[in-house]
């Protein structure tokens, strides 16, 4: 491509925002379809063929609704909070490689940047809950924070393992290392990796407040949690942020473990748009799993969540870190390679 740098970034930005908005809309549709079929129903079907225009109708409904600002809220926090959830998520897409050359900014610390932005997300929940002047929202905000703190640790430990394995924080680089067929994916790099993947995936679920870790918006306990008081697009932006975060989480899992845009078999091309295809196929598969999980399990409690994090995920991820480190250092000694 011959675009100059500022134009390139602009083009990517517009593309990413469109991608996020479209995805948020159609993931809701997909979620409703998946939920429907899991439960023996059909899901949306009235608006357009297969209900495909349903997201459009929902969008129009949300946008045409009045943005209520209830009495007693902190107006600034109340209005900023949804953006604080959405914007970092959109920013994170800047470093995600959709294809070999399809990345907005191929920076060397891409992974770090995503985690930096991910921790802003929780601020949005906290401020939204706090600013709403609603007891349910405050409880939910407190839950969301403790949950995020607890889950960032095992997630980061797993990520450190991956960094050790790949010795880079550049996401595109990581993907390139996994070229050459399914067996070269990091998922199969050593016998511990499937567990690392599982831990990463569980943490990603918890980070994005998805069931069974949706304590923040536990509808049977806290009505709608931090977005109880939001109406219209205020709620809509929270929603988009949630789905954007899910896409980010799943993309990261794909990049770290499942070979990013690489095709699973060498005889299948991953050049150009094929790369995008493979990448999105894997991401959507993981997103489907996320939905599948949501519609299968009951919700955990905060205790259950912290127990899982501190008693299971952290020790095991530490163990994986140690063993992987040992393997990287000791294996070459044994086999005599340099």
């Amino acid at each position: 491509m011959t675009l100059t740098e500022p134009w390139r970034v602009l083009a990517f930005l517009v593309g990413i925002i469109a991608f996020v908005a479209l995805n948020a809309a159609y993931l809701v549709w997909l979620e409703r379809k998946v939920a429907g079929h899991i439960q023996g129903r059909i899901g949306p079907k009235e608006v357009g063929p297969f209900g495909l225009l349903q997201p459009l109708a929902d969008g129009i409904k949300l946008m045409s609704k009045q943005l209520l600002v209830p009495k007693g809220v902190d107006p600034l926090l109340f209005k900023v909070a949804p953006l604080l959830v959405l914007v970092p998520a959109v920013m994170s897409f800047v470093t995600i490689p959709f294809g070999e050359n399809l990345v907005a900014r191929n920076i060397d610390i891409g992974l770090l940047m995503i985690f930096a932005f991910a921790s802003v997300n929780v601020m949005g929940l906290l401020l939204g809950g706090w600013g709403s002047n609603n007891k349910y929202a405050v409880i939910s905000a407190a839950r969301a924070v403790s949950q995020n703190v607890a889950y960032e640790i095992p997630m980061l430990i797993t990520v450190v393992t991956m960094i050790m394995l790949t010795s880079t924080m550049n996401l595109n680089e990581m993907v390139i290392q996994q070229g050459g067929g399914i067996l070269n994916w990091h998922f199969f790099a050593n016998p511990l990796m499937p567990f690392a993947f599982l831990i990463f995936f569980v943490c990603a679920l918890a980070e994005t407040n998805r069931a069974p870790f949706d304590l923040g918006e536990a509808e049977s306990e806290l009505i709608a949690g931090f977005h109880t008081e939001y109406s219209g697009m205020g709620f809509g932006v929270f929603f988009m942020g949630e789905y954007a975060n899910i896409i980010i989480g799943c993309s990261l899992a794909v990049i770290l473990f499942l070979g990013g845009w690489q095709s699973p078999f060498e005889f299948l091309s991953d050049q150009g748009l094929w790369g995008v295809f493979w990448f999105l196929a894997k991401v959507y598969f993981l997103i489907f799993c996320v939905m599948w999980i949501r519609w299968t399990y009951p919700r955990t409690t905060l205790w259950g969540l912290l127990n899982l994090s501190w008693k299971i995920l952290i020790p095991i991820s530490l163990l994986i870190l140690l063993l992987t480190g040992a393997m990287i250092k000791v294996w070459p000694l044994i086999t005599g390679a340099s």
Binding site: A35, I38, Q39, G40, R41, A211, P212, D214, A218, E219, S220, W295, T296, Y297, P298, R299
Partner: peptide, 16 residues
């Protein structure tokens, strides 16, 4: 009850 605990799907199976 399972719905109270956050699981939505069993409700619909039971309703069936």
């Amino acid at each position: 009850f399972v719905l109270d605990l956050g699981g939505f799907t069993p409700l619909l199976y039971a309703f069936d």
